[in-house]
Amino acid sequence: MEAYRNKFIATGKFAPLKHFMVGVFVLAFGLETYHHHKYHGEHDHGDEGHGDGAEAANGAAANSARERAALGSLDGAQMEVEELREKVKAMRETMMGR
Rank of each mutant, 00 (worst) to 15 (best):
K13V: 01
A56E: 02
R5E: 11
E83G: 04
D47E: 04
E48C: 05
E2A: 10
H45S: 09
V88E: 02
H36L: 15
M79H: 12
R98I: 13
R5A: 12
V24S: 07
H45V: 09
H50M: 08
Y39E: 14
G72V: 05
L17N: 14
V88A: 13
H43G: 07
R92N: 03
A56I: 00
G23E: 03
E48I: 07
G49K: 01
M96W: 13
H36N: 13
H36W: 13
Q78W: 12
H40P: 06
A57S: 05
M95C: 10
G41F: 01
A90Y: 05
G51M: 10
Y39D: 05
R92W: 04
N58S: 08
M91H: 11
E80G: 02
A60Q: 00
G41T: 00
H35T: 08
M21Y: 07
R68A: 15
L74T: 14
H50S: 09
H36M: 15
E55M: 03
S73K: 00
G53F: 00
G76T: 00
A69F: 05
R92E: 02
R5Y: 11
N58W: 13
L84A: 14
E67Q: 08
A65D: 10
L31C: 15
S64Y: 13
E83N: 08
G51L: 06
S64A: 06
A3N: 12
G12L: 00
V22Q: 03
A54V: 08
F8Y: 06
H35P: 01
G53P: 05
A57T: 09
